[in-house]
């Protein structure tokens, strides 16, 4: 019987967990002991510097981050839907175009796309004065559409085949079936992963600073860096970081809620 065993399964599990906690505590201890707390306090938690950032950090920086993200995501969503439909098209050329586009832009750093759009277009077409918001919308939209397109394609493919068959047998055309039956259900499925893309784009919007900005156009990262320059303190970076979390954490919460309501499993129950 179990007399030959040195440890029961439960004891072993407890031992391993104990070791994990021990290592965790050790890491925290080492970091806490080696960090220079005095410097951290003056550098990151300078109350005067923090106070000086308000209200502009909200009224300008946070607002612009939201605007830039919304512009990019709106464009990305529209383009992504087109890409998804092209990927599933019966026309080979469309499929390959969409495939190539997605592989290309999904593999490029967002920063390069942003610089290519913001500085490349006016260079290639002399005399073009790019509206900054349009440049941002196009650049961030291109980046996010590559991800969004793949997410939507997966969503469309996840709509049960029976839905299409039922619609077709009721006499709906393939186009009408796609628009009225498949796409609405696909969006329900992809809402949680789309929220993830939105969160990622919120952070990528920081790269907009490379396009150059006037004071009224600063988003959170550039605003934080300007303040860092002026105040020679890292506090603005901390504040800017908190502001990103103000945007992203509610989005995560939303994503989780959508996942519970509409995610896998909810579909079959609903249908």
């Amino acid at each position: 019987m179990a007399t030959t065993r040195r440890l029961t399964r439960r004891q072993r599990a407890r031992l391993i967990r104990g070791a994990q906690y021990g290592i965790g505590a050790l890491v925290v201890l080492v970091l806490a002991l080696t960090a220079n707390w005095g410097r951290i306090r003056t550098a990151f938690f300078d109350v005067d510097v923090a106070r000086g950032m308000f209200p502009e950090v909200i009224t300008i920086a946070l607002k612009n981050t939201v605007i830039y993200t919304a512009l990019g995501f709106g464009f990305g969503l529209a383009l992504g839907l087109v890409l998804a439909l092209m990927r599933l098209s019966s026309v080979g050329v469309y499929r390959w175009l969409a495939r190539g586009y997605i592989e290309f832009f999904r593999g490029l750093p967002a920063l390069l796309v942003l610089i290519a759009v913001g500085y490349g277009i006016p260079t290639a077409f002399p005399g073009t004065i790019l509206n900054r918001n349009i440049a941002i919308m196009v650049a961030l939209g291109i980046v996010s559409s590559a991800y969004v397109g793949e997410v939507i394609r997966a969503g469309i493919q996840a709509v049960p085949r029976g839905q299409v068959e039922a619609a077709r047998s009721l006499g709906m055309s393939p186009t009408r079936t796609m628009i009225w039956i498949v796409i609405p259900q696909a969006f329900r499925i992809v809402l949680p992963p789309l929220t993830n893309d939105l969160i990622a784009l919120t952070k990528d919007s920081s790269l907009v600073l490379f396009l150059g900005a006037t004071q009224g156009q600063y988003e959170l990262t550039q605003f934080g860096r300007q303040e860092l320059n002026n105040a020679k303190s890292l506090t603005p970076v901390l504040i800017a970081g908190v502001c990103y979390l103000i945007i992203t954490i509610p989005l995560s919460g939303l994503s989780n809620r959508l996942e519970r309501r509409y995610g896998s499993g909810a579909m079959t129950r609903g249908a």
Partner: peptide, 21 residues
């Protein structure tokens, strides 16, 4: 004047050259 802040001289001069500023 409306000051437009650029990250480095290369980007600044490209903006001047293409008439963005």
């Amino acid at each position: 004047a409306e000051l437009v802040v650029f990250e480095d001289l290369g980007l600044l001069l490209t903006a001047v050259e293409t008439g963005q500023v």
